[in-house]
Each structure stands twice: as structure tokens, then as C-alpha cells.
């Protein structure tokens, strides 16, 4: 798994995708940061991350859409799938490489906390809870994006599918309250209030594990359909 993680992480940094993701996120985050401070005069670190979740909804596919689609289109999937590495280790390697990029992005957002700390007094504990929740949300998003990428060799299809499902999960609960347990963004909001509850953590973790497993199953089953 480490070999694949290393190579994938390197790929993120060698191709501009890693930089685009981090750059795009920080750019939009900064805009929100400015707007909330100057227009609404809110000095609130966790409030920023509600917007951060919105940004993440739209830019997660930058990280995930190429994961398996590109390999399939270029034929390089033949190289990994005929190597003695197991499919599980391939999937986990790619997943954690994306998670690592996410971690770097989050580390960068600490500078906003530093700025706020200089001018005001934001709560460190709430900030940590927010960052933790945001990471869990990102893992869930990445796992679904990866799953979408394993379904098709067309990156655009993977991208649209990912964003489409995220938006549906975001807005559908507003119309059908019965679906609210599936709204990842609503679940994440709890973390921004400084509430860490087992229920929310388990929801994120099971969502993530489910789609990692589904990706593995898709790749394994493809062997007999290809």
C-alpha cells in the first residue's frame, strides 16, 4: 500500500492537480474569509468552515475523478492489476494519498486561525473539533469520489456524478426531512458547534468505509466483465 500511496502522492504534486486543489480551496476560503469579516463583521473560525464544506462539495472531484478513470483510459490499470499487489492495497493507497493532500490543505487553513487569534479570541477547542469534523467529511467525500471514478473511464462523468450526488445529499433533506440523516453537511454543522458526538463520527466513518469497500468490489468484479 505504501508504494502506491507514495507514487500517488507524488503524482498529485508532479501534475498540477494537487496544487490546483489546495490553491483553489484556499482562494475560495480566503474570499469567504474576507467577506465574512468585512461585510458581516464575524470573527469566527468555525463559521468559515461551513463555507469550507460548500467549497469542498464542488472541488472534491479535482482530487478524485482521475483516480481510476485515468488509469483505465491509459491502460495503466493493467500494470497495477497484474502486479502482485492486492486490489485492496491499491484502493487504500490511492485513498490515503488523497487524504494526505486534504490534510495539507487543512494545515494551511490554520493560518486563518492565527490571524483571528491575533485580533480576537477564537476558541481553540471548537476550532479543533471543526477541523476534525471537516477532515472526516473530506474522507467521506473522497471515498465517494473514488467510487464514482472506479465506475467509468470518463473523468467528466466521474466528476459530474460526484458533484451531483453531493448536491442531492445536501438539498434533498430540505425537501424530505426523512432523508436528513444522510445529509453530510448537516452532520458536519454539529462539529462546528463544538459538539463531538459518537453518532456523527460513526456516520462519517461508516459512509467512508462503505464506499471504499464498494470501490474494491467494483474493481474486483470488473475482472469478469472486462
Amino acid at each position: 500500500m505504501l508504494a502506491i500511496l507514495k507514487k500517488e502522492f507524488k503524482s498529485y504534486l508532479l501534475s498540477p492537480i494537487g496544487y490546483i486543489f489546495v490553491g483553489l480551496f484556499l482562494l475560495m476560503f480566503s474570499i469567504f474569509f474576507m467577506v465574512t469579516i468585512f461585510n458581516y463583521s464575524v470573527l469566527n473560525f468555525e463559521y468559515l468552515f461551513i463555507n469550507g464544506a460548500t467549497i469542498l462539495t464542488f472541488i472534491t472531484p479535482v482530487l478524485t475523478m482521475r483516480m481510476f478513470s485515468e488509469e483505465r483510459r491509459n491502460g495503466t490499470e493493467q500494470l497495477i492489476l497484474t502486479s502482485p499487489r492486492s486490489i485492496t492495497s491499491v484502493v487504500l493507497g490511492k485513498f490515503f494519498a488523497a487524504a494526505l493532500i486534504m490534510l495539507i490543505t487543512e494545515a494551511c487553513t490554520l493560518m486563518y486561525f492565527a490571524i483571528l487569534k491575533y485580533f480576537g479570541d477564537p476558541s481553540l477547542m471548537v476550532a479543533l473539533s471543526t477541523l476534525g469534523g471537516f477532515f472526516l467529511l473530506a474522507l467521506a467525500y473522497i471515498s465517494f469520489g473514488m467510487f464514482a471514478s472506479s465506475l467509468t473511464e470518463n473523468q467528466i462523468v466521474a466528476c459530474v456524478l460526484t458533484i451531483g450526488v453531493f448536491i442531492a445529499m445536501w438539498f434533498l433533506p430540505n425537501m424530505l426531512p426523512a432523508l436528513s440523516p444522510f445529509s453530510l453537511i448537516n452532520i458536519f454543522d454539529k462539529f462546528t458547534q463544538g459538539i463531538i458526538s459518537i453518532k456523527e463520527i460513526i456516520t462519517f466513518v461508516t459512509f467512508t468505509i462503505l464506499f471504499v469497500l464498494l470501490t474494491i468490489i467494483v474493481l474486483q468484479r470488473r475482472k469478469s466483465v472486462k
Partner: peptide, 11 residues
């Protein structure tokens, strides 16, 4: 060595 020589182009 698969058909069409697939390679990772960023390496």
C-alpha cells in the same frame, strides 16, 4: 508488457 505500452506520463 501490455498492448499499447501504457505508461505513467508524469514519471
Amino acid at each position: 508488457m501490455p498492448e499499447g505500452t501504457p505508461l505513467y506520463y508524469d514519471l
